[in-house]
Simulated scan of single mutants.
Amino acid sequence: MKKQVLLALLFLVFISFKATSQSYLQNGGCAQLNPIDFNTLINGKKTGLFFLKKGNLTAAITNYGGRIVSICAPDKNGQKADVVLGFKSIEDYLKATGVYHGAIIGRVIGRISKGIFEMDGKTYSLPINNGANHQHGGLMGFHNQVWDVKSVTQSSIVLSYNSVDGEMGYPGNLKVEATYTLTSNNDLTLKLSATTDKATPVNLTNHAFFNLAGEGKGTILDHIVTIPSNSFCAVNPDKIKTGEILNVEGTPFDFRKSKPIGKDIILENSNEQLKIAGGYDQSYVLKKKHSAKIVLAATVVDPKSGRKLEVFTNNLGVHFFSANFFKGTDIGKMGKPFNFRESFAVETQDYNSPNQKSFPTLILNPGEKYESYTVYHFSNTK
């Protein structure tokens, strides 16, 4: 009799757990994600999946790389779709050829020539992981670290990561905090902050790839983009910023008036900067000086679904990328391959580089606080 009661209780616990888990599974056109598939250990630290919900949005965040795994958003008819590319398990993230999906990038986004920078008369050498250059914080950058979960509510999560002195060649113990919050205004906000005990370059971003039609729903060349910027940063054949700021006037990079991504990308064989990047992969200048002022970085609309994404930031610039190198080798959480130009990235960041002295500095000093704020606002056109 006791055994039967015990079995009944265990069954009730299992049903309760299953119901709780099922309540976190997204459906109705969005990925079905099971937290169990994100529970593992990486370098002795626990990973997990955390769901946020507020208003018409649902988001899924993993502390592996501080990644956005999913954002579920309605179209003009109320039909929901998963608009961020991601994977259904930690195992899939670990074996993916694209390693930056949805992740927080640091200490420094972008490429540093030959992995060398100078600061205060000293030369620092960083590990090479992109041709002859250092990219996105190195192989074991923030995207490849397990972040600590400080707190979780129904609509927000706070993550932290302590990057030790000398990690990936960077000086100083850098304490970083990332806060994702869903608001009743259909915003996903990301606040990134950092402090250091030694001078060090810092330039953080989130590297989510979007398709407003939904993950795996085909080309983004028909997506209509607006970027309210008069200028962008020139790059050399290694896609390292040269220090030259170019005017967008009369170039394929002019998005001051709304246009489809595909309208001018066809000029990639005749325009040097498009050719170097293999499409759009450029940093735009939004502000010339650091300030807390929030400005519009970009607007993207999918004309078929009517989904609209507006990105706001206090950063100096925004990097726009048209997924020029995806080859369909990675299969996402919707069971579809990540193909060439079927997603885009809008990365809010400072446009500068630690080796370009004419640009505003990236150096964070002891006693200072780095603060980056980004708003992803979702709505619909009529």
Rank of each mutant, 00 (worst) to 15 (best):
F87E: 13
V84I: 11
D82W: 09
D92F: 06
K95E: 00
G86W: 09
I68M: 12
V83A: 11
V69W: 02
D82M: 09
Y64A: 07
S70K: 09
I90R: 09
S70Q: 05
G78T: 09
T97E: 15
I71C: 11
A59S: 05
N56M: 13
A73E: 01
S89P: 07
E91Q: 13
C72Y: 10
G65M: 08
D75I: 11
I68R: 02
C72T: 04
I71S: 08
V69A: 06
N56E: 14
G78A: 02
G65L: 03
L94V: 02
V69G: 03
F87T: 10
L94H: 07
V69I: 14
K95A: 05
G98C: 06
G78Y: 04
C72F: 12
P74Y: 06
V84E: 12
K80C: 13
A81L: 07
K54D: 14
K54G: 00
A81W: 01
V84W: 07
V99F: 05
N63Y: 06
K54A: 12
G66L: 03
G78S: 02
V99P: 00
S70E: 13
D82N: 14
N77H: 13
N77T: 15
V84A: 12
F87Q: 13
G55V: 06
K76H: 14
K80H: 14
G98L: 10
G65C: 05
P74K: 09
I68K: 05
R67V: 01
I71L: 08
T58N: 14
N77Q: 13
V84R: 02
P74H: 04
I61T: 04
T62Y: 02
S89K: 11
A81V: 06
D75P: 10
G66C: 12
G65F: 00
A73S: 14
Q79M: 10
N56S: 15
D82G: 10
F87M: 15
N77D: 15
G98D: 15
A73H: 06
V83N: 11
D75L: 11
G98H: 13
K76Y: 13
V69N: 04
I90D: 05
F87I: 12
G55Q: 08
Q79F: 03
E91H: 14
Y64P: 07
V69H: 02
T62W: 07
G78F: 08
Q79S: 13
K80S: 15
V99K: 15
Y64I: 03
T62P: 04
D82R: 01
G86K: 07
Y93W: 12
K54P: 01
A73L: 10
K76M: 13
V69P: 01
N77E: 13
T97Y: 12
A59W: 00
R67A: 11
G65Q: 08
V99C: 05
D82P: 05
K54Y: 12
A59Q: 10
V99L: 11
G65W: 03
I68Q: 07
I61C: 00
N63F: 08
T58H: 09
G86H: 03
T58F: 11
Y93N: 14
N56V: 01
C72H: 02
G66Q: 05
V69K: 09
G78W: 02
T62L: 10
C72S: 03
A59V: 05
P74D: 00
G65R: 03
T62V: 10
V99Y: 00
L94S: 04
